[in-house]
Write a protein that binds this DNA or RNA. Structure first.
Length: 607
DNA sequence: AGCGCGAACGCCCTCTGCTGGCGACCT
DNA sequence: AAGGTCGCCAGCAGAGGGCGTTCGCGCT
């Protein structure tokens, strides 16, 4: 031992031996506390013991140990540069030195060991070992010696005792004399056998945690376990802020910095830092054997337990019930809520309490309700006009207050219908349109095809059936917003019309309204060139629904405004307005003509 | 002095769970 | 087209089990 300062753990206390002032070695019993930093280096130059400030009732001291400048350990390595990759300190032993120059002065709290008060005949000078018999002390002193007289003939390694040597030699020869009576295992030492039996057969766990119900076969495991209660993390990564409670985790963590990936997939040669990552990865190569974790609450399956748990968390767990805005029913989680929502698909659940209006969207119902409350929240900031919808205000501002407004140029329609030659800007719209030509498709399918997205209607213009298409398929596409009321129609003469306003007249009102240049005429459907009466195609009830058109090429915007005012006066007779659109319309510009309730005011846009 | 046992040190492994990126699909 | 959702997957850390090896000490 000589001048060495070494530390050993007894389970109860830690003993530090250090050079005495008189040149002899001395021993102090220490009780390790959470903030103890222990050093196993040698040749300390300064030792100071001062009273501790932690008044716990016990007599305690603070031991300040100053290392010499050269900081050489017994192996001649630089203790301050102790390699973190070298775990000779052991995971259950003292934490490794930080290697920081500032850490040379270590503070150690020590308390006198209780056994020190016992007087014994034979005391060890290096530790607090005492024995009533001299020969026992004599033998004990060997433990302080580095002498290893028993050499292995195979590897030249030395051992303190013959028993240690014999055990070691057994490892060379493969001799395992200690056989388990419960299984086929055999061990080099009897201690191994006992421990094995505890782990595998009797499950005897004599070491109990005082904080939880954990028990362990070995004390070292309990000590390791206790770190999860204390939060102690003695093993600091030199490259980042991570600190580990044991050496293995630090070593594993260091692979992040070194890039080491020791685990390789034998199929695709992908490499991993952890064995279990490889194990999980291997599953992707074994299609048939993949584990399937079936959700108990829905048909979903996951490849991993952890993913199933996330699924359950996301879809089957909710702080509060989710309420359906359409029917008011409550659902306990997102999954049942989503399933329920499917049942409302295409359904006009949002019904007006004051009129027959219904919509698939609450937003549209809210907008509709403004009619009943006579509110026009969208006020033009440049005149006194107000509108119920943002889009109407936008259009108004463009038409009357924006001299720079240029209607967007028509965009190319590249998708042409082989049946009727009609062109569409979007392929999806053409596909949907094709259903109209399909003789196999039922009326319902056709209706669905029409309803989907575009909600096309057939209108009679100039005595001919024409499709009324949403404005986003017209040159006015860019004008539309999600509430877009503008609806373009095409007359037989190729003229295109845009619905300015949807007006509902009293049922049975046969009045045909027509507009001629420079005037507004209310007349029958005898139509001049300037006037077209359009009857909606689905007017099956015998009611005459007339769509008022403005076809006049010479019609000015002022005229259009005058027409609107005229019609406004007529609204006094009307019950309510109807408008609806399809919120599922991904192009966001559809507007369904509510033919049973509406008259259409159309404006020519071609000119 | 030798033996036998228990404890300690040290290493490696597996299981578990969390996180975040990615891509397919949906809205 | 863009944003949201959700399963798949890799990465990584926490916790604990198991065992090889060595040491210390009581007993004979």
């Amino acid at each position: 031992m000589g001048e060495e300062c070494a530390e050993a753990s007894s389970g109860e206390a830690t003993y530090i031996t250090m050079p005495r002032a008189d040149g002899q070695d001395g021993t102090i019993a220490m009780e390790a506390t959470d903030d103890v930093i222990l050093n196993a280096g040698d040749g300390y130059q300064t030792v100071t013991i001062v009273p501790s400030e932690t008044g716990t009732g016990e007599v305690s001291y603070v031991l300040i140990v100053q290392q010499p400048e050269d900081g050489k350990d017994k192996d001649g390595d630089d203790a301050n540069l102790s390699n973190v990759y070298d775990f000779d300190e052991g995971e259950e032993g003292a934490p490794p030195e930080s290697g920081d120059e500032e850490d040379k002065a270590k503070i150690i709290k020590i308390v006198p060991k209780k056994s020190q008060t016992v007087t014994q005949a034979h005391m060890c000078n290096y530790c607090n070992y005492t024995s009533p018999k001299r020969y026992l002390l004599s033998r004990h002193m060997k433990s302080h010696s580095e002498e290893r007289p028993h050499k292995c003939s195979v590897c030249e390694r030395g051992f303190k005792t013959l028993a240690s040597l014999q055990n070691h030699v057994n490892t060379h020869t493969g001799t395992k004399p200690h056989r388990c009576k419960f299984c086929d295992s055999a061990f080099t030492t009897s201690g191994e056998l006992v421990r094995h039996v505890r782990y595998k057969h009797t499950h005897e766990k004599p070491h109990h945690c005082t904080e939880c119900d954990y028990s362990s076969v070995e004390l070292s495991k309990l000590k390791r376990h206790m770190r999860c209660h204390t939060g102690e993390r003695p093993y600091q990564c030199p490259h980042c802020t991570y600190a580990s409670p044991d050496t293995f985790k630090l070593k594993r963590h260091l692979r992040i910095h070194t890039g080491e990936k020791p685990y390789e997939c034998d199929v695709c040669h992908a490499r991993f830092t952890q064995s279990n990552s490889l194990k999980a990865h291997r599953l992707i190569h074994t299609a048939g054997d993949k584990p399937i974790f079936q959700c108990e609450l829905c048909p979903t399956t996951c490849g991993r337990k952890t993913d199933l748990r996330i699924h359950v968390q996301k879809l089957h767990t909710s702080d509060k019930p989710l309420k359906c805005k359409r029917c008011g029913k409550s659902y306990p989680d997102r999954y049942s809520f989503k399933v329920h929502n499917k049942t409302h698909e295409g359904e006009k659940c949002f019904k007006c309490d004051l009129c027959p209006y219904a919509s698939i969207s609450q937003r549209h119902l809210e907008s509709h309700m403004l009619i009943h409350t006579d509110q026009k929240p969208f006020q033009c900031d440049q005149c006194d006009q107000a509108f119920r919808q943002k889009q109407l205000l936008k259009r108004h501002q463009n038409l009357y207050h924006n001299p720079n407004y240029v209607p967007p140029t028509p965009k190319e329609k590249t998708h042409e219908c082989p049946e009727c030659g009609r062109a569409f800007r979007h392929k999806g719209n053409l596909i949907r349109h094709m259903a109209v030509h399909d003789p196999e498709s039922s009326a319902q399918e056709k209706a669905l095809a029409l309803k989907l997205g575009r909600q096309k209607k057939i209108q009679i213009i100039d005595g001919q059936q024409v499709e009324v298409m949403p404005a986003d398929e017209t040159d006015e596409e860019e004008e539309e917003d999600e509430d877009g009321e503008m609806m373009a129609v095409e007359g037989q003469d190729g003229q295109q019309y845009v619905v300015l306003e949807v007006i509902q007249l009293q049922d049975g009102n046969d009045t045909t309204m027509a507009v001629v240049p420079d005037d507004i005429v209310v007349s029958g459907t005898d139509g001049t060139e300037a006037v077209n009466a359009i009857e909606s195609a689905d007017g099956a009830s015998g009611e005459t629904r007339i769509i008022q058109t403005l076809k006049t090429r010479k019609l000015t915007r002022r005229d259009a405004q005058a027409i609107k005012k005229k019609l406004e006066a007529q609204k006094d007779m009307e019950n309510c307005f109807g408008f609806d659109d399809d919120e599922d319309d991904e192009e966001g510009a559809s507007s369904e003509i509510e033919s049973k309730e509406s008259l259409k005011l159309l404006e020519t846009i071609n000119e």
